[in-house]
């Protein structure tokens, strides 16, 4: 075990994968000597050279298309798109090309590609650099969607994503990059599609992922002081979804709150609620709730951004409300 940040854990995963497998390479804007916006690729170019750590022009269509093409012929690219907000510029390449090749070639070709993107607000980056768009990716058959919440998961899920034969959208919360925790040494993987019980409890199930997991744990701690025991589930990957874990927890607690950072309407929380209502309806003691952002773009000033991030405060109220 070593104590390291989420960004450092991701960096270590890159190093391990690139040392073990010469097919793995990474490409993106400012990822070489500069080390990427969040220093995730720091030092990689010095170790692996410019042929395996490629600095690219600002041309998302070209680099995403090229990563898909390289994956089709047997490479294992890790593509960095600095902010998930930028994915609109290459959305066709992700949605229509990366996600569909395996289907279109009837399994004769696959796209073992990892697309890394930073998501989330909290740093005052404003409208075009703070969004959470995971719901888009989850609706696309053919993509897997991973959103780690801890340094140890970041490393283990990244190594699993690199091993996966499918295109994996790997969303890193920019507020978590500096968070430090214990991370196991060496190579290990955290399987995609397996949720983590971040805290056990019998009264309410809080389903969350990525940057919302710390909020859920904090609310659970505060609720415990009031005698309410929350079970916090960290989904880790949204596709595949560990539906069984969610249903099992709700069957135990009878109450569900889904908490995420993204806007409420059309967010992934809706899918979680819909699945629970279909499968665990008879176990529900009260209406399942979504606690998520208001439907607005992300404002810039920290004071106004706090309105967008008001989920943090509203979660505890929701917990109190659902048990009363």
């Amino acid at each position: 075990m070593a104590r390291m940040s989420y960004a450092e854990a991701l960096n270590e995963a890159h190093c391990i994968a690139m040392r073990d497998d010469s097919r793995v390479f990474t490409l993106g804007e400012d990822i070489g000597e500069y080390g990427g916006i969040y220093r995730v690729t720091k030092g990689l170019q010095a170790e692996f050279g410019e042929q395996r750590v490629l600095d690219t022009p600002i041309s998302e269509i070209a680099i995403t298309g090229a990563a898909v093409g390289a994956a089709l012929v047997g490479s294992r690219p890790i593509l960095e798109i600095g902010f998930v907000d930028f994915v609109g510029t290459c959305w066709d390449q992700v949605f229509n090309q990366a996600a569909k090749f395996s289907y279109m070639t009837d399994g004769r070709a696959s796209v073992p590609l990892v697309i890394r993107m930073a998501c989330g607000a909290g740093l005052g980056y404003g409208v075009h650099h703070s969004q959470s768009l995971e719901a888009w990716f989850t609706h696309v058959p053919g993509l897997k969607v991973v959103m780690p919440a801890t340094p140890a998961d970041a490393k283990g899920l990244m190594l699993a994503a690199i091993d996966d034969p499918n295109p994996v959208v790997f969303l890193e919360h920019k507020f978590l990059y500096e968070v430090k925790d214990e991370v196991p040494d060496g190579r290990y993987t955290v399987p995609l599609g397996k949720a983590r019980v971040a805290r056990e409890g019998g009264d309410v199930t809080i389903v969350s992922w990525s940057g919302a997991v710390p909020w859920a744990l904090k609310a659970a701690e505060q609720a415990a002081a009031e005698g309410i025991e929350c079970e916090v589930l960290d989904l880790r990957s949204l596709v595949p979804l560990d539906e069984d874990a969610i249903v099992a927890s709700v069957e135990k607690t009878g109450r569900l709150i889904v908490c995420h950072e993204a806007c409420t309407t059309g967010g992934f929380g809706a899918e979680v609620v819909a699945r629970v209502v279909a499968r665990a309806f008879d176990f529900l003691d009260s209406e399942p709730l979504r606690v998520a952002a208001p439907d607005i773009p992300v404002p810039n000033s920290l004071a106004l951004e706090a309105v967008y991030l008001g989920t943090r405060e509203r979660l505890l109220e929701a917990v109190r409300g659902i048990v009363s």
Binding site: P294, D295, I296, P297, P299, S301, A303, L304, E305, A306, V307, Y308
Partner: peptide
């Protein structure tokens, strides 16, 4: 600073 509600306006 603007009142928090300003965040919700003119979407």
């Amino acid at each position: 600073y603007a009142a928090p509600e300003v965040a919700l306006e003119n979407v």
